[in-house]
Structure formats: C-alpha cells, structure tokens
Design a protein around this nucleic acid. Structure first.
Lengths: 122, 122
DNA sequence: CGGAATCCGACAGGATACTG
DNA sequence: CAGTATCCTGTCGGATTCCG
C-alpha cells in the first residue's frame, strides 16, 4: 500500500486500504483538519499551526492532497511569493467523517489508555 | 507518534494524533472490520480473510487492539489450542464511524484517482 | 494451532543546507 | 516566502525458523 500508487495492489477495490493509503499517514488528516479550522492558509501559517511538522513533510503532504483533489492550491506571482491552500469541495465532504472519529476519540481515549495500562500490568 | 505509547508526545490531547496512533497503521482497521463482518473468529480464520497479512503482523495487531480494549481474546486450553477473537463493545462503537469513511471512499475513490491522473499529466 | 524470536530490507520521515 | 535537494536514521513490516 504505497501512497504514490492509485490503489492497493492486492485489493484494488477495498475501501479501507484505499482510504488509509490517502489519509492514514502521519500528517494528512492533521493538515486537512487544520485547513478546515481556518479555510485558506499560507504555507507558513500551516507550519505555525502544526509546529512539529517539517517543511519537507508539509510540502510533500500538501502535494499529495492536491494531487488527490482534496486541497486547492493558489499561487500568486508576487515577491515575496504567496501561496494559499484551501479545502476543495471533496476535501470539505471528508471532514465531517473525520470529525465523527474525533468525537469518538475524545470520549474514549481515556478509557483506551486505562485499558492499555491494565493490560501492561498483567 | 509511537503506537506503543499512550499519547502523542507533543500534543497529548490531540484526538487526531491519538486516534491515528491506534488505527492509522497498515492493518488495525482491516482487522476490526474483518471481525465485524463475522464476529468471533479464530486466528487462522482471520488470516484467511486477510490473505496478505503475515502471522507476525496479525499477532502484533491483535495484541495492541486487545491492549486498547477494542478486541476481546478468549483462549481455550485444548489441544490443539483454540483462540477466538471478537469485537468488544468499544470496538463495536468504533465501527460505524469507519463504515462512514468507507461509504465516502466508495463514492469518491474513482474521482480521487482521476484527480491524481490529471495532476500527474500536468 | 497459535503464536514468539530473529534477521533483514524498504521506506517514511527528520535535519540541514540551498534556491528562485 | 515557499519551497527543493541531500543525507541519514528509525520504524514498520516481510520471510523464515522454532516452540508448547
């Protein structure tokens, strides 16, 4: 399951594999979510809002999200250059589903962590 | 963001990072989903239903999901041994959210792939 | 049958330096 | 400012072997 490939090689029609190959990496969902909280942001803003992402990974992530049509990129030929990123309609349609995951996580994380603590103590 | 740690080091309360650290790996969601489609399955069955997973990764994934309280493991002291895995209540509560993601993926993957093709041609 | 242990390769991703 | 280019490391995950 390679992010640069179109589909999972073994199960090209498996939605789990395909969706994970898009947003299952370390940064994609975080970038999408950051864009939603304040649609239209510049490269530097995104970096500030995700302080521990490297330039390399932010650039790479945005490139893939743009290639997949989830993020729109608008470059202005100025000096110094200005580039603005925003969610596409498709990107926006994905966010509510992520939000649901987050709601679930918020109300279950403590519980999950407690489970794991108990498990490790056994 | 290490799956063996409790929380993301930088942002311990960020739900995106925490949920991704649980099910954002290559196999977790697939195992959860496979368990849902036929609750209660043995190790060998799971392997058959996910043909390209290795023993090592299936065992490791199940261990983490069990530690997080998403999957229940029941071992019977027989010879040959029998072990049955099933979704816990918490695991079941997570599945509908994944389902939503999959519905989204099903109706958008072709579009996403087309986007990427266009992008690569530029 | 249901694993654990070991070895190993590939690749995601970090740090740093450089550029239009 | 918004990126590339390069180098380097850690981790994920595959293949194989062994065990109760």
């Amino acid at each position: 399951m390679n992010r640069t490939e179109f589909r999972d090689a073994f199960f090209p029609d498996c939605p789990i594999r395909n969706v994970l190959s898009r947003v299952g990496d370390k940064w994609s969902m975080l970038v999408l979510f950051t864009l939603e909280s304040n649609n239209c942001q510049r490269f530097k803003e995104l970096q500030r809002n995700i302080p521990d992402i490297s330039q390399k990974m932010l650039a790479a992530t945005l490139k893939i999200l743009e290639a997949d049509g989830l993020v729109r990129r608008e470059a202005y030929a100025e000096i110094p250059p200005r580039v603005e990123y925003s969610l596409s309609d498709k990107g926006k349609s994905l966010l509510p589903l992520i939000d649901n995951l987050l709601v679930w996580a918020s109300s279950n994380m403590d519980d999950i962590i407690a489970s794991r603590r108990r498990y490790l103590l056994k």
